[in-house]
Design a protein around this nucleic acid. Structure first.
Length: 164
DNA sequence: CGCGCGATTGTA
DNA sequence: ACAATCGCGCGT
């Protein structure tokens, strides 16, 4: 069953945690989300939405849309917008378990699935081949600081589920 | 209009 | 430890 606005219209950390074990569908690909990070505007210096910019504008919009950006000039990262409109936030997808391979890291996920800027701003609540559905219930969930950031290192907004 | 740097990854 | 690689975003 596809996840709806009710699922994404909650605090980004709640959604990030709840996304663990859910099934991401992108065209012919289908995998279990195993690792996420939450990012938020205003109170989160590490977030692209700490200030409103052209790039982060999507994070200020309604939830359930994809937010894709290019990092280090060569890797794309996939996020899903959360919370109500004008409450900027998004969940970064960092781990995905496919039937044949485990993708660990946001850049690897987008490279393997073929996700680029063309996939930015897509409504996952209505799109026919890009969405999230129910999956499995995580056995154990671990919380840690986020990876690769220089600011707001104290926030425990990274979530991982045990594999198996 | 110019320039430094990043929510990464693979290689040394 | 560090290079690859380029659009964003902030300062001028």
């Amino acid at each position: 069953m596809r996840l709806t606005a009710d699922f994404f219209n909650n605090h980004v950390c709640q959604v990030a945690r709840d996304l663990l074990g859910k099934r991401l569908v992108f065209g012919k690909y289908e995998g279990i989300i195993t690792e996420t990070e939450g990012y938020r505007g205003a109170d989160d210096e590490a977030s692209h939405a700490y200030r409103f910019t052209k790039r982060s504008a999507i994070m200020f919009g309604p939830s359930g849309r994809s937010y894709v950006y290019l990092i280090y000039g060569m890797y794309h990262c996939l996020n899903i917008v959360t919370e109500e409109k004008d409450s900027p936030s998004a969940v970064l997808i960092r781990g995905l378990m496919l039937p044949d391979i485990y993708l660990s890291g946001p850049g690897k996920i987008c490279r393997h699935l073929g996700i680029t800027m063309k996939e930015n701003g897509i409504d996952l609540l209505s799109n026919h081949d890009f969405y999230v559905t129910e999956g499995i219930v995580p056995k154990e969930i671990i919380t840690t600081p986020r990876i690769g950031i220089t600011k707001a290192k104290d926030k425990l907004w990274r979530f991982l589920m045990s594999l198996e």
